[in-house]
Design a protein around this nucleic acid. Sequence first.
DNA 1: TTTGCTTTTGAACGAATGTTCATTAATTAA
DNA 2: TTAATTAATGAACATTCGTTCAAAAGCAAA
Lengths: 195, 195
Amino acid sequence: MARTTGSHADITGPRVRRAALRLFAQGGYAAVSMRAIAAEVGVQAGALYNYTPDKQSLLFDLMRSHMDDLLTSADFDLSQDPLTRLKSFVEFHIRFHSDRPEEVFIAYMELRNLSPDNFAQIEILRSTYENRLEEILREGAANGQFAVADTKIVTLAIIAMLTGVNTWYRQGGRLSLDQVVAQYWDMVRKAVGAG
Amino acid sequence: MARTTGSHADITGPRVRRAALRLFAQGGYAAVSMRAIAAEVGVQAGALYNYTPDKQSLLFDLMRSHMDDLLTSADFDLSQDPLTRLKSFVEFHIRFHSDRPEEVFIAYMELRNLSPDNFAQIEILRSTYENRLEEILREGAANGQFAVADTKIVTLAIIAMLTGVNTWYRQGGRLSLDQVVAQYWDMVRKAVGAG
DNA sequence: TTTGCTTTTGAACGAATGTTCATTAATTAA
DNA sequence: TTAATTAATGAACATTCGTTCAAAAGCAAA
């Protein structure tokens, strides 16, 4: 038997990516075999190579499209004041990340499994995102809305704090996402010294 | 040739653990072979099994001794007021973790590579640590020193924020550890609504 | 110097790894 | 209906994996 009934590239392709996403998030890149991904799709391992040149590209493509998605979605109205934009950032970050737990998990855990070239590309995207927050903090420090001594440190601290939500937040848990957003905004607002 | 000159169990044992620590932190548990660990020690793979029953135990032992070390070191003077204890916690957490980047990295990244039994044990130790911070926050909220709505969330937020230091702090960088501690204490103090 | 114990070697085990490719079947276009 | 194209199989490749174990060699005590 070779090609099976109902087989289509435009169906199998996305399924390969989704299976890789799920399995990488679950077990880690190194622990997931191409055969395991193929089994999840319902196909033999060889068929995967119609959709990716190799396993490394599969990981990289997942990461890059996640980061592209992040940067496209993180567009804040630059005409607004820094405090308003900071609030938008906090809310956006929490909601965007809680919507994509698997992509986020991979983006943070599998960096070391990227080839050096691929790692460098992802790092650029990541620092681009960080810079958007730092720019908000810089402007707020300049116009006196915020009291922050070192915008770089505060940027990293805020992002670490917000991303941490993904380690424990589950839909249907004790708190609604609205409540989570409100709590974190309260902490961030205070931390940057905005009354 | 079999046993080599100068071979001793009390020397090789710790060296196996240190090699595993370094390599797991560098490449990830799943990506590091027993042969690679053996090569780092300067021994054949078979010799490792004089010091660990299997690869999984090697990982678990590293994690458990790290967590034991953490809990032993994290003893705060319960007679002090919550604000003072919170400051002690922040300083302790940053210094302890920045002293052990490899152990910390493994403890956070390799949880999913633990067997279910081992995972459960580590999780208990981890939540024990979290509870020490939450207890400080609860007492401070009760005596009016802190303004925190949900101690559980604030606990997780603070720990995520502080642990994030390990992703960027390097000795000899732009900021001294004293400066880092001061900055983070400033943010935490404000975030919990303390003066 | 001999004896017994400890430590390491090095080969071997079966299983699993990423990837390639000739073959085959399903689909599409003519 | 036929021909061309696309998609999948399944076997095979050379490596590598964690682990075991008999044999060998260093060491310490008698």
